Amino acid sequence: MNASQRFEDPVLLVRRRGDLVGEWDRSCHLAPLPDGTLSTLLTLCGERIEVGAVELLPQPDGMPCVACLLSVPPQRG
């Protein structure tokens, strides 16, 4: 996560499309909501995924990307 991104910023649940990669490469990643001008999503773990190769998920599905989960700062409360 870059320094300018706030914890409250919306994120997408994404993974690579199954018709393009094998199941091993389909971890569920967290990616900041793009501004609409990017052709590549940059996940919280630093992985780049082409927008045309991504599947948007309405809820977590499959194996989570541990590095993405560890990149989320703890909630203050």
Rank of each mutant, 00 (worst) to 15 (best):
G22M: 05
L57V: 01
R17W: 02
S4I: 12
R76P: 00
W24T: 01
A67P: 02
G52H: 11
V72P: 03
L69Q: 14
D9G: 09
L30C: 08
V51N: 01
L56T: 03
L41T: 06
G77D: 00
T43D: 08
L20H: 05
D19F: 03
L13D: 07
V72F: 04
R15H: 13
R26L: 05
G46K: 03
P64M: 12
G46W: 00
L30K: 08
D9H: 11
Q59S: 14
R16S: 11
A31R: 05
D19R: 02
D61Y: 13
P60Q: 06
L42M: 06
R48A: 11
E47W: 02
R76G: 04
L33D: 00
R26F: 03
E23Q: 09
C28K: 05
P60Y: 08
G46I: 11
P34E: 07
L20D: 05
P34V: 07
E23L: 10
M63A: 12
L38W: 00
E50D: 15
W24G: 00
G18H: 02
L70T: 08
P58K: 10
L42R: 13
L20G: 05
V11C: 10
C45A: 12
P64C: 05
R6P: 03
V21P: 01
R16H: 12
R16F: 06
C28E: 01
G62E: 02
T40V: 15
E50A: 15
V51K: 10
R6F: 02
P32S: 14
V66G: 09
E8I: 11
T37F: 14
R76E: 01
R48T: 13
V14L: 12
V66K: 13
E47R: 15
L41D: 09
V11I: 11
P34N: 06
